[in-house]
């Protein structure tokens, strides 16, 4: 990757809770290249959404971001609302998980699209309307003139997510953050939505951050994949490396947990023993060590830094010889 669109440097996200401050993301660094699709994989609570909500300046009221999230020379993590509002919806767009609740129920779909153009492109309504209808057509919504006049509850979940994508694409952003864009949708619709995102990336050269817990989604879309656990990146690499030669026991565990239809030898479901850690009481050392089948004494003492895997990727694990890593436990 020649130039990056977004650079996260030591980004932390902390939430003030009655029990004290909790770090949802800890000193995370990564960069997204121009036109690249970066997949971010992790379980619920791994901090994958909060990392990028922080970059958008959309953290909940009790949350705050520390560190840097550089986008176009501006540190989003420290930018004021005016600066953020000039970028959001314009050069930086986000697609959310739940299309059923992410559109304003009392506004016509068309109006929700045109207001982006009115805001960022200074267009008058008739011109914005033409652009919005063209965009609805582009995301393969049939009868766009009619849908334009509809309210969100009159559309199916798949159509609403198409509207969300159209909304994100309105101003031709440099980066789209898609936070679990297909999780709430039927499987058949999922593929169509992913295809739309892929086409936006290819036709417009938009970089995409695809946040998901679904490895299948990442495999078909991403150029690189970052695996998150307990608020940190544990492994980052090219998509084929992650899938073919995972270098972190957690990555390997996640892969082993994914049921495969094409593998005749995998007859049983595999799980990773234990639970994701409580962010208020993280284990000492490597956060994954209580669940790791290859735990060593030093894993309990200190957290491993991100280090090169030798294959161009990064991993946060002390293990040298990875051939013998145990992936998970077979459920009988």
């Amino acid at each position: 990757m020649s130039a990056s669109v977004l650079d996260l440097k030591n980004l932390s996200v902390r939430f003030a809770t009655p029990e004290g401050e909790v770090a949802a993301v800890s000193e995370l660094s990564l960069s997204v290249g121009k036109g690249e699709c970066l997949g971010i994989v992790g379980e619920s609570g791994s901090g994958k959404s909060q990392t990028f909500l922080a970059a958008m300046g959309l953290l909940a009221r009790n949350g705050r971001a520390v560190g840097e999230a550089i986008f176009g020379g501006i540190n989003l993590a420290a930018a004021d609302e005016n600066t953020l509002n000039r970028l959001r919806g314009n050069k930086l767009a986000m697609i959310f998980q739940d299309p059923m609740t992410s559109l304003t129920p009392h506004m016509k779909v068309g109006h929700q699209l045109t207001e982006v153009l009115v805001r960022h492109r200074n267009l008058k309504f008739p011109a914005a309307r033409d652009r919005a209808i063209a965009m609805l057509r582009r995301v393969q919504i049939s009868e766009p003139e009619r849908r334009f006049e509809m309210y969100p509850h009159e559309l199916s979940g798949g159509l609403r997510q198409r509207v969300m994508i159209a909304m994100a694409l309105m101003c031709g952003p440099e980066l789209i953050i898609a936070d679990e864009p297909t999780t709430a949708l039927d499987v058949t619709v999922q593929a169509q939505i992913l295809d739309l995102i892929r086409r936006a990336k290819e036709e417009l050269g938009t970089a995409v951050i695809l946040i998901t817990h679904d490895l299948g989604v990442v495999a078909g879309m991403a150029d690189r994949v970052g695996v998150m656990y307990a608020g940190r990146i544990v492994e980052l690499g090219e998509v084929h490396q992650i899938f073919n030669a995972p270098q972190h026991p957690y990555t390997k565990g996640l892969l082993a947990c994914t049921p495969r239809l094409d593998d005749a030898t995998a007859s049983a479901l595999v799980t990773i023993p234990g639970q994701p850690p409580d962010l208020q009481q993280l284990p000492t050392g490597c956060a994954y060590h209580p669940r790791c089948g290859n735990v060593m004494e030093r894993c309990r003492a200190a957290a491993p830094p991100l280090m090169s895997t030798g294959g161009g990727g990064l991993k946060a694990c002390f293990l040298e010889n990875f051939g013998s890593v145990q992936a998970g436990t077979v459920v009988p």
Partner: peptide, 22 residues
């Protein structure tokens, strides 16, 4: 607290519009 308020903010709408319109 609604999700659609987050969407409206993600569009870069000024706070006043987020409140009054959404």
């Amino acid at each position: 607290r609604a999700n659609y308020i987050r969407t409206a903010r993600a569009k870069g709408l000024p706070f006043r519009l987020v409140v009054l319109r959404h």
